[in-house]
Design a binder for these strands. Structure first.
Lengths: 357, 357
DNA sequence: GCTTAGCACTCTCGTCTGGAGAGTGCCAAC
DNA sequence: GTTGGCACTCTCCAGACGAGAGTGCTAAGC
């Protein structure tokens, strides 16, 4: 770590092939890969000694490392990055899995919350890693309909339906009791006048109205503003679904209980997860964080493969797979990609309204 | 196991004191208790040899067991049962903890779902074990209000508010598009005529009406029935909240990763958890399942301390603590008891309506 | 007759050892 | 540049061994 390795601009074709074999072997076995085991595969027609020399070079350049002097070698995050960027051929997701995803996502006349629940489960089931889905941040949600239900006395239930089909409800307490029929009027008013805007826009517009027309506000508008203010709480943290953590417990990398504990503690800290996901997704497409790319992945030696989902141009949330860095990226990346699209499509279908059939 | 031990009707006072000391020591140390360590406490003024004899008896009677020949002894489930029933003096929950609970449960103008979320967290936080809360079964929920929100085309969001403040929403698809104002009429009709009954009663009554008056049903009633049928789905599994599992990972009983895995798998199987909770709670008050009392507790050598919560006479759901059998029952039992009452009270306050202050 | 000291016995656990096996690095030969 | 050979290193496992903890039993004491 103290030495800056001189990294060649480009590895030779042979170097690359050997690195590729090492990664492939390690991903399957979870054990340090020896020069001999690479030679024995016979794919390159080279002796163990030659491969040994190359592997020593690769270590010098920062692509491999040895757990101890006389052990085989293990890929570094840099090796995975190179593998993903220029050595891997992404296969298409098998038809069987596509079908399975479609069946599950288009089954019930689900609301969006159910859809993302199913998605997180599919992510973990099909990858055998941890699936993570971040629901849309409430502030960026586009309003479809609002509704207020009188509960008792000054308590009112506020139901917000987003254009993408997410449902959010929250009990608020009003200054004074508001009669039922007025609640209906207010929800009609809000739905008719504000549908299609994000909650943030709506709140800002209402607040502006209030300050501008402070004198003339009639009681209905005042009440509308009061309800909207309480009901459209923008600061709520987005919901995060984590699925499949227990499946990871069979992996050799999680034989150490301390590491398991850190993993579950990381999952409990949703805010940190969201931060990591956001860090990962700074552009479009599928992004990958490996090992020391972020605090969470480096702490556990995990990787994160994530992408956005959304309807049309609008990004709604993020989904991804989290697991030990040793993962089959050539399978995981297409899976995340496909699920991101499938979820977006399912949300769009539900958004477009009407039956799916 | 093959020999039926002759168990004395009553242990002598000395036997009981020794058993008590063994349990107390084991609960703290998690290690087999030796006769010498009991003697050294000096509470009984007996030598290690005497205590050794008694402990041999207690083992013969099934209250203690040895992990291996020359180890100390460990309490059996039978010992814990005896301890709880007739040896333990339950302390009142410390004022500090009561205050903490009250602060957390009466803080926000929460809906009931938030309340049970806070409760499950309090359970785990204050016990350092796993907290479990089962939400009310939807079928037994008493209706407070229903509301339908048009989403798009034939999709309608059905919001059910229960008298205890639980909110359930579900998207249903209707035969044909129902205009907005009619949805309002239907929700008013249902709320006005059926509030105060359980969803099961309501559905039965509606179905009866439909068969009785099959000829004369007007389209409004028909639609009402259609919506109620889809919206009042009684077969949904009750929600189960599990909190604090990762805190258990520091315990010596969970040093074995296989056991950790089985624990998480058990938590994933919500239906089984509910079954176990129901098995536990067959009467009122706080009940305790230890080790081999149920399949889940025996599989993991865990115990479950649970009680019901509810409003007035009506039991709504169950809450409890799940963790290694070695737990401080004299603290855990009052905690569960208090939290059961506190949650019931908080629900009743919210039910009574109006502000709490 | 209950209690206790003493002692032999058993079992676990940590440490040490040696040998086997795996893997490397380097050198010399091709 | 490639390869076979070889010495070296490190891990892992099995076995040995002693220390320590705890028991069960017996015989002596109160």
């Amino acid at each position: 770590m103290t030495v800056t390795e001189t990294q060649p601009d480009k590895l030779s074709a042979r170097d690359r092939e050997i690195l590729k074999d090492v990664i492939a072997t390690y991903v399957l076995s979870a054990e340090p890969v020896s020069s001999r085991s690479v030679a024995k595969q016979g794919r390159l027609g080279l002796s163990a000694a030659t491969i040994r020399n190359v592997m020593a070079d690769l270590e010098e350049w920062g692509f491999l490392m040895q757990p101890h002097t006389s052990a085989g070698r293990v890929p570094t995050p840099a090796a995975y990055h190179m593998f993903i960027e220029s050595m891997m051929q992404t296969r298409k997701l098998p038809a069987r899995e596509r079908r399975y995803i479609e069946e599950n996502l288009s089954g019930a006349p689900a609301d969006a919350d159910q859809l993302i629940g199913v998605t997180s489960h599919l992510l973990s089931e099909l990858s055998q890693q941890v699936g993570i889905v971040v629901a849309p941040a409430i502030g960026e949600t586009v309003l479809k309909a609002v509704d207020f239900v009188a509960i008792s006395g000054r308590r009112v239930l506020c139901v917000v339906v987003s254009a993408a089909g997410f449902i959010d409800n929250r009990v608020i307490e009003t200054e004074e009791e508001i009669p039922r029929h007025e609640l209906v009027r207010i929800s009609n008013y809000l739905t008719e006048n504000f549908a299609g805007q994000t909650l943030r826009q709506i709140r800002d517009r209402l607040l502006r109205q209030m300050t501008e027309e402070r004198r003339q506000v009639d009681s209905l508008l005042a009440r509308t503003i009061e309800l909207a203010r309480g009901g459209l709480d923008l600061d709520a943290e987005p919901e995060v679904l984590v699925d499949g953590a227990s499946a990871l417990l069979t992996r050799p990398e999680l034989a150490d209980i301390q590491r398991v504990r850190r993993m579950f503690e990381a999952f409990a800290d949703k805010a940190r997860l969201v931060r990591m996901l956001n860090e990962c997704i700074k552009g479009g497409g599928v992004r990958v964080l490996i090992g020391n790319d972020s605090d969470l992945t480096s702490e556990l030696d995990f990787s994160l493969v994530a992408c956005r989902y959304g309807v049309g141009d609008q990004a709604l949330g993020t989904l991804g797979i989290f697991g030990p860095s040793r993962m089959e990226y050539q399978k995981i990346i297409p899976l995340v990609h496909y699920l991101g699209q499938a979820l977006s499509r399912a949300l769009a279908d539900s958004f477009a309204g009407g039956g799916k059939k």
